[in-house]
Amino acid sequence: MNAENFQTSRCITLNILRYNPQDKASEPRLQSYALEAADGMTLFIALNELREHQDPTLQFDFVCRAGICGSCAMMVNGRPRLACRTLIADLPDESTLTPLPFFALIGDLSVNTGKWMRGMSERLQTWLHAKEAEPDLERIEERMAPETAEAIYELDRCIECGCCVAACGTAQMRPDFVGAVGFGKIARFRIDPRDTRDDDDYFELIGDDAGVFGCMSLLACHDMCPKALPLKTQIAFLRRKMALVA
């Protein structure tokens, strides 16, 4: 039928950054692995195969392997991506995998996004600041316009994978930058009618050079977001609102 049915196998090379910061003797280096590509093979399958058959010391993170949990973001040929939904078929014969920059390295391709995200959440107070401390659980819930709920979910879809921060030029130079993930969260709570905070409160969180006025609008966050969140417009919107506060 078509050509791909005759193509039996394809050998690919993965150059993977190896480094164990815990081991004083370890130096960062690229190590090459050859591997036979199979039908429908993703980087999740490929990396596990490498670990099981070639190199048991290889470190990387996967959890859901379905593009939902955000664990497996890494730099694939220089760009941040979710490895689990990167098909080998879409990669060139030779590819380079490196850990996400910016985040603390645990080893090889594994970085500590969790710690950073928790810090970001604490700093930006990314939880709903409700009117009442204890909601009345027996009464019918407060109403919300269906469109509002949809708009909130649109921003709530962030999976904290870290791709936006890894892609961000500003974050490269400013270790204290809150990143698009942080702006996305603030934008999410800002449009939530259940949250009692106003723009003055949000200004206290993001109204500086580590926040929305440090962002240089390079938009790599927007372009690299695996969930296609509308980061460009949201950050611009926040900037306008915060500028109004000033």
Binding site: M75, A167, L218, L219, D223
Partner: peptide, 8 residues
């Protein structure tokens, strides 16, 4: 250089 991202 690594990102090959136009706006950056």
């Amino acid at each position: 250089k690594a990102m090959r991202h136009e706006d950056s």
